[in-house]
Amino acid sequence: MSSFTRRHLFLGVGALGGLALIAPLLLANPYSSRLAQLLFMNVLLASAWNLVGGFAGQISFGNASLFGVGAYATSMLWLAGFHPFLTMPAAALLAALYGVAWGWPCLRLRGPYFAIATIGVAEATRIVANHIEAAGGASGLTLPLEQDLGPVLLYALGAVLAVASVLVSAAVRRSRLGLGLIALREDAQAAAASGVNVARQQVTVFAVTAALTGLAGGYYAVFTLYVVPEKVFGFDLSISLVLMVLVGGIGTVMGPVLGAGIYLFLEQFVLASLADIHLAAFGALLIFIILLEPRGAAPRLAQFVRLIRRRFG
């Protein structure tokens, strides 16, 4: 099993090249560049969530706690005078540390118990964040508008982060770690009896999930220039990640990417016109996916691609 092949690197560079080519299109106006930023952030978030939620089968409703740590780390370091790019590694590191701190005990739980514990941790984090005066308390932090990186740099940063997260996901999927995760997802006891250190594998992948989610938080702070606990630590954010991955296809590498795109489209163009019933629309979508298409769009798309190939290839 070759873990990270040249093909992956090639595809990654290709994807970045493609994103560079269409950049002028997306940077045409502030709205379209904001859409691109949101898409990059969603891809990063969904791929990160899928590492632990899809490969290890541990559904987290608490990733906002990691996102928030990243967003605040970047904001506070930026306000302290560091260049925003330099704050990114700190955002990743602090989120990973926080993720390991609570993931280490919680990942001993499985299934719905883990899911509920993550809600508890995330909500506790949100409430505490609201009370930390040094971080602006409930009113949050506003970042220096005059130091805005500008659309081109933000686009480049987002593209690199998003492509990197997909490559990480592909590498994990094909690695020894990925094999162990899928084994423990299918049967934790049998995996342990085959030598898989269930606890260590889960904590390891969760650290990666947390670091990527923290990067997404940092990126969010850099392009919105405003962080507030109710938003960056909010339950709605945690839920939207789950929905993205479910829509796209849980446990696959490209599913989260697809889901991030579909979600953004729905959020911006469909739900925006349904402002009054957007919660219900989300609820209905969730029920619909779970009852009718629990594997998401990715397997369908793969089927479709195979069909096209057979017909024309």
Binding site: M1, L179, G180, E186, Q189, S194, G195, N197
Partner: peptide, 21 residues
């Protein structure tokens, strides 16, 4: 038997080989 249902035969056996002694 407690198979890893999402895998192929050779992948399942590889789990033992990768993680065992």
């Amino acid at each position: 038997p407690r198979p890893f249902l999402a895998m192929t035969v050779s992948e399942s056996v590889l789990v033992g080989a990768q993680f065992g002694r």
